[in-house]
């Protein structure tokens, strides 16, 4: 494996980790405010469908992005209505959203576009395409830095850069703003927040809206940036990997970035490692590498590497008085 191969793997890592970063950050807002969100998968899937549909009809990637975000927010509000207003079980509500997204995207896609749940192939004008950063071609011949800049940093689409910006932004919101302080507080002790005269319900709704926006970015990335159209079940469990990444990152934004890059790298490597024999171990089963994110998360949850402490009030509906 030479340097060019490494750059290729790293570029694949970045591409594969972007939806994970968006989705895990989406889950971070929800879960730090005390709302478990199993429905990330469904939000991502439905947003992907909306983005692709609107981009198909209007021919505009930006309107597609808007539709994706709107879908994510609406599904988040549904989750909020069930788990905040009606004080229902948050896990069940999330599972329901996953099923609704899975069924409705295929049903609507089939009825509207008649391609068995796919949306038509999008032209590049209706997608987020690669952006070549300045001087990429000029720097390319320089050894080491050249390929790194032109092959990895340049030539990604705008959502990739936004994903990497979303991490420090989320950190700033969470740790440097009043809203962030309150979100963290309401996830640990909603009673205290309520006593301070702040509405627990409204705060959690706002956190869920943030969650929906980011999930919308994730879905949009899948359908109109990474690929050129919606394919049925195209989220393919990424929402659950993002959930695992969120747990693995111990609900902290910068850890989320590192974990998603790790999981993205495992994904990229699993394709590459097919059939490669490691000395002294034999052939590595691809399935083992694919399952590694889940295995690592379980080991972490078991408390064998560090300790993952979820927000204290997570999963418990807040009852003001009884």
């Amino acid at each position: 494996m030479d340097f060019a191969d490494l750059i290729q793997i790293l570029a694949a890592t970045v591409r594969l980790s972007v939806p994970l970063i968006f989705t895990a950050l989406a889950g971070l807002y929800a879960e730090r405010s005390g709302i478990f969100d199993i429905g990330l998968e469904g939000k991502m899937l439905f947003s992907a469908f909306s983005a692709a549909s609107v981009a198909t009809v209007t021919g505009s990637a930006w309107l597609g992005l808007f539709a994706g975000i709107l879908t994510g927010v609406l599904l988040s509000l549904l989750h909020g209505f069930a788990s905040i207003t009606q004080r229902g079980n948050q896990i069940i509500s999330g599972v329901a959203i996953n099923f609704i997204a899975s069924g409705l995207t295929i049903l609507l896609g089939n009825a509207w576009f008649g391609q068995g749940g796919r949306t038509p192939q999008l032209p590049n004008t209706a997608r987020f395409t690669e952006i070549t950063l300045p001087f990429a071609a000029d720097i390319a011949p320089i050894p080491f830095i050249g390929p790194l800049y032109s092959g990895l940093i340049s030539g990604q689409n705008i959502l990739v850069y936004l994903a990497f910006l979303a991490v420090p932004f989320t950190w700033w919101v969470l740790y440097r703003t009043r809203f962030g302080l309150r979100v963290r507080a309401v996830g640990e002790n909603p009673g205290a927040v309520d006593t301070a005269g702040i509405s627990v319900a409204w705060l959690r709704y706002r956190a869920l809206i943030c969650c929906g926006i980011l999930a919308g970015f994730a879905g949009t990335y899948l359908s109109i940036a990474q690929s050129a159209g919606f394919i049925r079940e195209m989220s393919a469990g990424k929402g659950y990997i993002a959930l695992a990444a969120l747990v693995f990152a111990k609900w902290k934004p910068l850890n989320v970035l590192l974990t998603c890059l790790l999981f993205g790298f495992l994904d990229a490597a699993s394709i590459r490692l097919q059939g490669i024999i490691i000395p002294g171990f034999g052939e590595v089963p691809v399935q083992l590498i694919q399952a590694l994110p889940y295995i690592l998360t379980v080991i972490l949850l078991a408390g064998f590497i560090g300790k993952a402490i979820p927000p204290k009030a997570g999963g418990v509906p807040y009852v003001k008085e009884r």
């Binding site: 069930a82 788990s83 009606q86 229902g88 079980n89 948050q90 069940i92 509500s93 599972v95 329901a96 959203i97 996953n98 099923f99 609704i100 997204a101 899975s102 069924g103 409705l104 295929i106 049903l107 089939n110 009825a111 068995g116 749940g117 049925r232």
Partner: peptide, 19 residues
Amino acid sequence: SREVIILIQGLVILFAGAL
């Protein structure tokens, strides 16, 4: 499409479960 049953399933989970 056949997936209408997955939608129904999701709605049943939503209304009989979460709501």
